[in-house]
Amino acid sequence: MAERVDKLEQQQTQAQGSVDLVNQINALQAQIQSLQGQNEELKHQLDQLKQQSNDKYVDLDSRIARLEGRSPGAAAAAPAPAPANNQMQDVPLGGTAATAGNAAPPPAPEQNAAPAVAAAPTAQLSNPAVGGGDEKAAYDQAFGALKDGRYAESARQFQAFIGKYPNSDLTPNAYYWLGESYYVTANYPVSLDTFSKLLAQFPNSQKASAALLKVGYCQYELKQWDKAEATLNEVGQKYPGTQEANLAQGRLRALKLERH
């Protein structure tokens, strides 16, 4: 009888050990599944960051390319001679710059500047004099700070310019580059507000198309998907065949990928 009791106790102990082992295995499987889910989520976030980084690189390369007078994505064959003052020029969007062996036509008025900030100087282009001496000097000082990457200082100077010269021919440009100074520092809400003010106050400005594009860009960065889609579509409808329309289409494609 005693032997039977001992045998039953041993069997019970073994059974309990098996149950504990099964519970441990189940717990480990649950942890593995949780880790796999976290890994998939991190991979998705990484893919999103890669896509955003690529989009920003393409956008920056495109803007710098227009300022340098070359096709986006194409490497310059040879460095172009810099202007005497080594200053980035506020040049027309999609305008033609001088190429090797060819003289550039006179640039359009500076108000047509591209929606970009680039450190590289543009070959054989000049910044046409617009407005009075003090007015133009103040604008050039703010633009120079922007070109040098001193964005906070540039923003203060453009704000001061707008306050002092609200009716200047350069005021739409000042609003635009003020918005750009916020955009390149990822201050998208303030950038959006600035570009929106430009469109509200100067709807017929030569900066209007670029400003509308940047409104869509800001909405995209703020993940305001429906608004961004509507704005970018509006760019294509109002300015078909332009650089802005082409860039809007590219951002719309990125938006569709982002939303999925």
Rank of each mutant, 00 (worst) to 15 (best):
K197A: 06
D59V: 01
F143G: 02
V19F: 09
A245F: 04
D59Y: 07
N54H: 15
E258L: 14
V184H: 07
D193T: 13
S196M: 06
R259T: 11
S181E: 07
F202S: 02
R70D: 00
L232W: 00
F195G: 07
L178C: 11
L198T: 11
A76V: 09
T99A: 14
G37Y: 11
G95V: 12
Q51P: 00
S34D: 14
D59W: 11
E244M: 11
Q219I: 01
A160W: 04
L232A: 02
I162Q: 06
Q89W: 10
Y217A: 06
K207Q: 13
V215F: 02
L252C: 04
T185P: 13
E153W: 07
Q36C: 03
A174R: 00
K50A: 10
P203S: 10
L252V: 01
L199H: 03
Y165I: 01
Q52L: 11
W225Y: 12
A30W: 09
A113M: 15
L49H: 14
Y165T: 05
P121A: 13
L42H: 03
I64V: 10
P128M: 08
Q111N: 12
I32C: 09
K207I: 08
A186E: 10
A200K: 11
N173I: 12
T13G: 05
S62F: 05
A116M: 04
L192P: 05
A142L: 01
V19M: 15
E41P: 08
L213G: 02
Y175R: 03
Q157G: 01
A100Q: 12
P105H: 04
V130W: 08
A155Q: 05
D148C: 00
A30G: 13
Y57T: 09
Y176P: 00
A116R: 06
A245E: 01
Y165V: 03
L222M: 14
P189E: 03
E221G: 05
A138K: 08
Q33E: 11
P72T: 03
A82W: 05
R66N: 11
S34I: 04
Y182W: 08
Q157N: 03
K214P: 01
G17S: 13
Q48F: 12
P81Q: 08
A119F: 13
H260N: 14
P121F: 03
N85Y: 10
T231F: 02
K223W: 12
G133T: 15
Q38T: 11
A248I: 02
I25A: 15
E258P: 00
D169E: 10
Q11S: 12
G132A: 13
Q157C: 02
W225P: 05
S181V: 02
P81E: 03
H44M: 14
L146D: 06
Q24F: 15
L192S: 04
A97S: 09
Q45M: 12
Y57Q: 06
L146A: 06
A120V: 13
P105T: 15
K227C: 00
L170A: 06
L232I: 00
P172D: 08
D134K: 12
L21P: 01
P189I: 07
R150G: 03
A155S: 15
A104G: 12
Y239F: 07
N127H: 09
S71L: 13
Y165D: 07
L146G: 09
P72G: 07
V22A: 15
E221P: 02
L42V: 04
Q12D: 08
Y183K: 07
K50L: 15
A129P: 00
Y57E: 13
G94W: 03
E110P: 00
K147D: 07
A137G: 01
E221K: 13
R253W: 00
F195D: 04
G236K: 03
A160V: 05
R63W: 04
